[in-house]
Design a protein around this nucleic acid. Structure first.
Length: 139
DNA sequence: GCCAACGTTGGC
DNA sequence: GCCAACGTTGGC
């Protein structure tokens, strides 16, 4: 299983919005960046991802699961762009901030801390373990 | 609200 | 294929 990090501005679509959709989840549409799209194309059903609130909060707030693999993004006519479907799995007992990620040992190379613009990012198993521990998530 | 970083576009 | 111009993102 691979691990990812998905960003969203919480005033547009936040963790509570995803939670409200339950097991149906949400299509992760609107991605218009090749690197982010390629990361989505690499996802398989069952992969897990962190849900990150950008701009407001700047923190990881929960865990999502990929529930459907990449398919064309119906919100555009441009055939280049895809989306996956994700659903909420569990919220963090303690949210893990961007500052935490910059500070914690073992996260020095995390994409989040040095390519802040990439909206769908890979996360290594070690990074996943550290952040889940920090977030109070029992693996 | 500003601006640096980054990606994309399009003229050549 | 290069690169200047432009647009967007997101931290500050």
């Amino acid at each position: 299983m691979a691990y990812w990090l998905l960003k969203s501005e919480p005033d547009v679509f936040g963790w509570k919005d995803l939670l409200a959709l339950g097991t149906a989840g949400e299509e992760w549409h609107g991605i218009r960046n090749y690197a982010a799209r390629n990361n989505m194309r690499a996802m398989v059903v069952g992969d897990r991802g962190f849900f990150y609130h950008s701009n407001i909060g700047k923190q990881i707030v929960g865990i999502v699961e990929v529930s459907r693999t990449s398919e064309p993004d119906r919100t555009t006519d441009d055939p280049r762009w895809d989306c996956v479907r994700v659903r909420a799995v569990t919220g963090f007992a303690r949210r893990v901030t961007l500052d935490d990620c910059k500070r914690l040992p073992g996260l020095e190379n995390m994409v989040l801390t040095h390519n802040s613009r990439l909206s769908v990012q890979p996360v290594t198993p070690e990074e996943w373990r550290i952040i889940c521990g920090q977030g109070g998530v029992v693996l």
